[in-house]
Each structure stands twice: as C-alpha cells, then as structure tokens.
Design a protein around this nucleic acid. Sequence first.
DNA 1: TATCTCAGTTTTGTATACAAAAGTTAAAGG
DNA 2: CCTTTAACTTTTGTATACAAAACTGAGATA
Lengths: 220, 220
Amino acid sequence: MEFAMDISSKTRSVRDVVYEKLKEAIIVGEYKPGFHLNERQLAEQFMISTTPLKEAMRRLEQEGLIITRPRVGSFVSDDVMVSIEEINLIRSAVEGIAARLAATKINDDEISQLEETLKEMERYTKERNPEKTLEMNAYFHKLIAILAKNNYVYKQIEAIRSFDLGPKNKILSNPEELDRALREHQLIFKMISMRDPDGAENAVRSHIHRSTTFILNTKK
Amino acid sequence: MEFAMDISSKTRSVRDVVYEKLKEAIIVGEYKPGFHLNERQLAEQFMISTTPLKEAMRRLEQEGLIITRPRVGSFVSDDVMVSIEEINLIRSAVEGIAARLAATKINDDEISQLEETLKEMERYTKERNPEKTLEMNAYFHKLIAILAKNNYVYKQIEAIRSFDLGPKNKILSNPEELDRALREHQLIFKMISMRDPDGAENAVRSHIHRSTTFILNTKK
DNA sequence: TATCTCAGTTTTGTATACAAAAGTTAAAGG
DNA sequence: CCTTTAACTTTTGTATACAAAACTGAGATA
C-alpha cells in the first residue's frame, strides 16, 4: 500500500524531529500546562542548537499548543488538555468539509481509488483483522482529505489527527464497532461517488461523532 | 527595502512582523503560487537575519501557505488561492463549532457581555453606520470564538480570518445585508444564550454560508 | 512597613559563520 | 547523440556568539 502524499519519510531534519517530540510530550502530558519550555535547556537535552528548536516552537505556537511571551519564554498552553470530545468536534467539522469538497471535485479515477480502499477495508473487516482494518480506516479518511484538493484543509486535518495518541485503537477494535464503521464508510463512499456534497458532509460528521461518543461511553 | 521601515515597531518582534508581511504578500498574490521564497534574498530585502525569517516561515508552513522542500527551499503553495467559497466553508464549520462550545460553556455574565455587543450592533445598524456595524460584527464573531474557551479553536478562527483581505466590506455595507445580518446575529445570540448547542452551530453556519454566497452573487 | 530604584541575572531575540545537501553544468565515454 | 559523472554553484540546515528585554532581589527611602 503506497501513501500518495507521504511527506515525512525522507524529511527528517532536526527541527521536524524535535517538533514531533515536543508535541507528543505535550499531548501525553509529560510537559504539563504552564510548563516553561526553556530554549537553552531543551537544546542541551536534545544536544542540538537553538535554531531548529526555535523553528519547532514556532510551529507549536501556530498550532496553539504553546504560548510565547516575548523575551520571557514559551509555555505549554493552559488548555492543551481540551477533551477528546472537543478535539473530535473540530475534527468532524473539518473532515466534513473535506468530504464536501471531495464530493464536488472527485473524478472517476479517484472514485475507483477510493472504492479500492473501501473494498480492502471490507475484506479486513470480514477477516476480523482489526489492525489492518484500522490502518485502512485511517487511510480512507486521509484519502478524503487529499481528494478535497485543498492544502489548507489537508494540513488542518493532519494537525488534528496528530492529537490522537490514546488507547483509542483498542476500543475501536470491538467487532461490532468495526462493522458499524464499515457501514458508515460505505455510506460516505456512496455520497462522495454520487457527488452529493451535503450527503458526504453529513455522513462524515455523523460517523466521526458517533464513533467518538462510542469511545467515550466505552471508556467509563 | 520598502519593508524595512515597518519593522521599527518595538512592541512586536521581527519574526512576527515578517510573518504578517509575508502572509499578506502571499494572500494578495504579490508572491504567486510556486514562487520561491529565497531565505537570504528575503533577509536582505527586509534587512534582517535569517533566524527570525526561518521562524516566520515555519509558521506559514504550519498553516499550509508555503511548502518547504529540505535543502531546496520554501515555495508558495500551489493552492493558496483557494476560492473565497472554500475558505468560508472551513470558516463556517469551525466558527460553528465555536458557537456550539460557547453555548455549552457560557455563564450569565458572558451572556450579558455578548448581549451588550449585539445591542451596540443594533444601534449602529439602525443608525446606518456601516463602518461601525461591521466592526461590531467582527467583534461579535471574535467574542464567540473567545467564549468557546478552547485555544485551539480560537487560533484556527483567527488564522482563517486573516485570509479576509478582499473588498468584502463594501459589499457587506449594503443596507439590506446589514439588516439581514443583524437578524441572524440576533438568532445566534438567542441560541447561545438559551444554551442550545445544535441551534447555535446551525445559526452560525447558515449565517456565514448565506453571507458568503451573498458576496459571491453580488460580485458578478 | 511598603515602595521605589538599580544593578545583576536569566532568558529570549537576532546576527553571522560554517556545514551539508540538492541542483546544475559541462566534459567524457559509450 | 545520449548518458554518466564529477566538479561547481546555490540554497538551506545547524551551531554559536552576542544583544536586549524582562525578571529578581537587596538596599535605600518615605
């Protein structure tokens, strides 16, 4: 399976690596809200200079994960720990727009490509292979983001997805959930291939919303 | 050269100023899609070093406005010129979520604050003062973004809003449009103050959507 | 006691130097 | 004539040095 828009494999510059490390550390709570990300200290820890560190921090700042007070320092944002529910609200909204755009722009070749992905997902779901199914699940969503043909939308979705670091996968591996998700993905595909923007947006929104509430309810 | 003077502002750092300058230049089309943002060349033009320039570029990269190929350069993204329609789709989706969150979190003091803003907008609308009305319009939307109490959402909305640089204001100064917008804002306020998340989200979405199509239809 | 001042410390902001990768061109070899 | 290769050029990536703003705290003063 080749990923059409894989940007990360070859570009492993220091600034990218440290960006990912810092982001993960913030999201998993290793750096707690309010924590001072001391430039020199971090540079020493990572054994790098401040230049790539600064570049990574500007990206985190742009995402709202850290707040920088000039000449004082960068601090982990107080409301990084927005609930999974809120993050997924935004995700469902933006991915919904992606589906809408994809429905208006998709061509026949791309419909085949999307269908191929769906078929593969169906196969893995019937084989009860949760790992592969979830992998195809992620790719299906990513493909829609690509088919929106709007780099801004794509970037936003990737940024939001990187917040997912929890034990989500175990929950979603529930067989009934996999079947439900498959049916919803089939609906999404149908709407996009029919070039129905409203239908596509709604299908994605309700899918993400339902799947999120499922996770929340299962957790407790 | 012509940019150098503006950097004298002491309150903001060079990296922030140059970020805004570059962003505006990209949005208004001064730097066209595919244009190579040469680090050293730009640094010379702005009469600054490459460090703050790099930091600004990482923010633009994070936003998807430029694409950086390692050791090659940063280039204005090919699809920066997404139509005003697409930008506003995303905006309506994210501001819709902001309204939803605001409806679930708002307290009585904040309802008064929002009402105050609305009343001021009513006054200016009745006085037929388009400039002030639009100013309050912007503030009303911003206040909702703040009341969502989610820094991520706030940041996204601010980032999207910065794309607005067109002759939008003239179109929106149409008296009928101002009246229509006022009624819609009243509905939005009502929904949020009633703590109705669905109603609030729908009200914002349809308001932004209608107002956008009005602009598009008026333009031609 | 409370507040103001000012020097000392901390921390980031910016500039510059150098290293390394990618791109380019032209000559050599088939 | 086309392809390969290797030197050369261009451009970014990273490290380091220094400047400047913000914070801190002790001592003076009202």
